[in-house]
Design a protein around this nucleic acid. Structure first.
Lengths: 239, 239
DNA sequence: ACAAAAGTGTTGGCAATACACCCATGG
DNA sequence: CCATGGGTGTATTGCCAACACTTTTGT
């Protein structure tokens, strides 16, 4: 949401000459904000940068787009390279193009959000990073490189908004789960307690769940298990 | 909304060698879907391409992003170059990155939506286009270049969705207008008739309008004039 | 038997819908 | 005075939020 200024700034004087030449063009990258829930806490996966001026800072996994691949492919490839995982739910978020967002060059980044059912499925980080790890969203994150703070805020806003009118939660839960798990997930992401009866009614009205015959047995009364009717995230018709 | 494939396609064999070299990178462009309403019809501004394989096809105005400018600036610059207008409301829509979307090269396009209060304010199209003109959305558009059909669908969807929970209409109306104009605008964009009384109540409840003392005099009973409290589009709090 | 979590219904308020008549003006 | 569009109120409905007790199991 922005009003475009009437007079555009052009290349800032501080930018090196070689980048202002006629044929210099911004590069395109993809960066992916990865979310997963663990112990009723929303976590995000960050990698630590190895090289140059940004050495030691943390960032979302990403990299340059190659000629011949789609943005979705590039985001999937970089995520797999960084974490070893494939097949995650991914969705394009927003594109960030401030020429100063990367101090080394003008790189336009197309941000993605990825959702995982379990943080444990990520492997060791790629060679090009010195470390990787999960951080609790909401707690203080380590100092992030580029404009990744802003990206994180956008991603979180998108995720919570979509909870309300889609079955996006499918991507953050195991195939089979109890109503309590689902409720906890919503409560965590929305940051508030939910009324169990109203929540159950509302979700059932969406008709996105299938009740299974199996029960989860634990210390107390067994809970009915559910799975999603469709494992593909989509907008839910609410009538 | 998409599931990333587990195995990415890489550069397609049909792509020229020079684009597959290690250092070749996709370019970044911006394209802007411009909307305005005229006679209760939603119109979009298209330009006709001059050169090459796409000669004669129509497209949304756009062009390559330069090193040193933000995406917003690039979109504003290209729109001004194409139509002479500045200061329009613009908002980033989505990024399109299919390597085959432009037959000449791999160009990632960051799409924008621009809203104008009046189609008459656009000037003559830029040199690089052979023509420019307004086309009714919903009627058959001329054959569009690139993936601009898809862009148009995305843009329209975004626009109508935002009508429901924002004061986005501010950008499609003159500074001062009657309730009828506002209602017609909503009816046009939503594609259905609205109940005058309910519509009035709903909009007034949003508290985004200021009632003016002046009246519009016409052939019949004068209509009260309104203006928006804020001319900046933003999400409306509905309580 | 008891502790702990699962499961279930009813009510009141608010917001959206459907619907029809009077008003003010210009011609 | 009449044609035309501007302006208004009410009754009904459906949805959402608030709220507490019973059931089932393990120990």
């Amino acid at each position: 949401m922005q009003e475009v200024e009437s007079l555009p700034r052009f290349a800032t004087p501080s930018r090196p000459i070689r980048e202002r030449t006629r044929y210099a063009r911004p590069k395109v990258a993809v960066d992916t904000v990865v979310f997963a829930v663990q112990n009723c806490r929303l976590k995000t996966y960050l990698v630590q940068l190895k090289g140059g001026a940004l050495r030691g800072r943390w960032a979302f996994p990403g990299g340059l787009v190659r000629v011949g691949e789609t943005l979705d492919e590039a985001a999937g490839r970089e995520l797999r390279a960084a974490t070893g995982l494939g097949g995650a739910y991914m969705e394009q978020l927003f594109s960030f193009g401030d020429p100063a967002r990367d101090p080394r060059a003008h790189v336009v980044s197309v941000a993605y959000v990825a959702l995982l059912p379990d943080p444990a499925i990520v492997g060791a980080p790629a060679e090009k990073y010195s470390a990787g790890g999960w951080f609790e969203v909401g707690a203080r994150l380590p100092p992030l490189a580029y404009d990744h703070e802003q990206m994180a805020r956008y991603a979180l806003r998108r995720l919570t908004a979509k909870l309300e009118y889609s079955n996006i939660a499918v991507a953050l839960l195991p195939r089979v789960f109890t109503f309590k798990q689902l409720e906890d997930l919503y409560a965590t992401l929305l940051g508030r307690r939910l009324d169990r009866r109203n929540f159950r009614r509302r979700i059932l009205a969406m008709r996105i769940l299938r009740e299974l015959s199996a029960k989860q047995h634990g210390a107390h009364r067994p809970a009915t298990l559910y799975s999603f009717v469709s494992r593909t995230p989509h907008v839910v018709q609410m009538l």
